[in-house]
């Protein structure tokens, strides 16, 4: 009996050794794959390929705020629970993908329909792709070619692209967004780093409100509108909390230390 227990313990501890996850370098997603979200609450259950949503196709055209505040998409995979019925009713993807809205001179294709012909299946497959689409990859590199470069993530400096007017993300949709009185942009401020030797962070509200307004971060991600009210450290950030909600998923990843830790020592 004791021998059996010992053998079981040995196997379990060896198995633990094999699955230890620290100490290895993670593989970086390719530039065209960064920001990809798989939407599959119901798709495979009903026998259709899950949707592979690429953020880059929309980032150049719309602000984060428009989709995540006005239209109401959740910022966590699997939380929004989009159904084809929602799209057909004009919610979520269906807000624009309804064959009625016109954008950049073209009609936006309808997402999901109750009845469809064989010819329509191609439209379904634009999102519900069973296999990775090589055209999408080439489209990405063609798109990225004319934009300023960055080190990680998509390899695109989205901030600079917006600043220099190469992209003009839309922040207001008629019939969807409600116009509110704009609030004054807050000043830049320093966030002290806890480790001696690491430069402090310079946080710019202006750079963020261009994409997010106020509502995207406050109060759900950052409770304290008062400086210093929310306490956090890099450990939580790497765990996809606070700044890590966006910066590691869609915005430039946090391995680019030098983009935030910029206050001269």
């Amino acid at each position: 009996m004791k021998k059996l227990l010992f053998i079981i313990l040995l196997i379990v501890s060896l198995a633990g050794l094999c699955f230890a996850q620290g100490g290895v370098k993670k593989k970086r997603p390719k530039p065209h794959e960064y920001g990809k979200v798989t939407l599959n609450n119901y798709a495979t259950k009903v026998g259709i390929a899950p949707v592979e949503f690429d953020h880059w196709t929309h980032r150049g055209k719309f602000t984060c705020r428009l989709c995540h505040v006005d239209i109401g998409f959740s910022m966590k995979t699997g939380e929004t629970q989009i159904k084809a019925a929602d799209n057909m009713r004009g919610y979520f993807c269906g807000t624009c993908h309804n064959d009625k809205m016109s954008f950049e001179g073209r009609r936006v294709f309808a997402a999901c329909s109750k009845e469809f012909t064989k010819g329509d299946v191609k439209r379904c497959e634009r999102c519900h792709a069973a296999a990775p689409n090589p055209t999408k990859e080439t489209d990405f590199y063609k798109f990225a070619e004319r934009l300023p470069k960055e080190r990680f993530g998509n390899g695109i400096d989205w901030e600079k692209a917006e600043e220099t007017g190469l992209i003009k993300p839309v922040d207001f949709l008629e019939g969807v967004s409600i116009k509110r009185a704009p609030m004054a942009a807050q000043k830049d401020f320093y966030i002290g780093s806890k480790i001696e030797g690491m430069p402090d962070i310079i946080f710019s509200h202006k750079k963020h409100t261009v994409w997010n307004g106020c509502e995207l971060c406050h109060p759900e991600i950052f409770v304290g509108v008062k400086k210093g009210a929310t306490k956090y450290s890099m450990i939580e950030l790497f765990d996809r909390k606070y700044c890590g909600v966006c910066h590691d998923t869609v915005a430039f990843p946090q391995i680019d230390c030098q983009r935030c830790h910029t206050k001269p020592l």
């Binding site: 050794l17 230890a20 620290g22 100490g23 290895v24 370098k25 993670k26 990680f152 480790i195 450290s233 890099m234 450990i235 790497f238 946090q254 391995i255 680019d256 230390c257 030098q258």
Partner: peptide, 28 residues
């Protein structure tokens, strides 16, 4: 910085799990 942090080594002192010679010698 990002060659090692935070994937290989945690940034907070003494919080890197399983950081011992046996793991180091097998490639972690």
């Amino acid at each position: 910085c990002n060659s090692c942090h935070p994937d290989i080594f945690n940034i907070k002192k003494k919080t890197t799990k399983h950081f011992s010679m046996s793991y180091i010698l097998r490639g972690d």
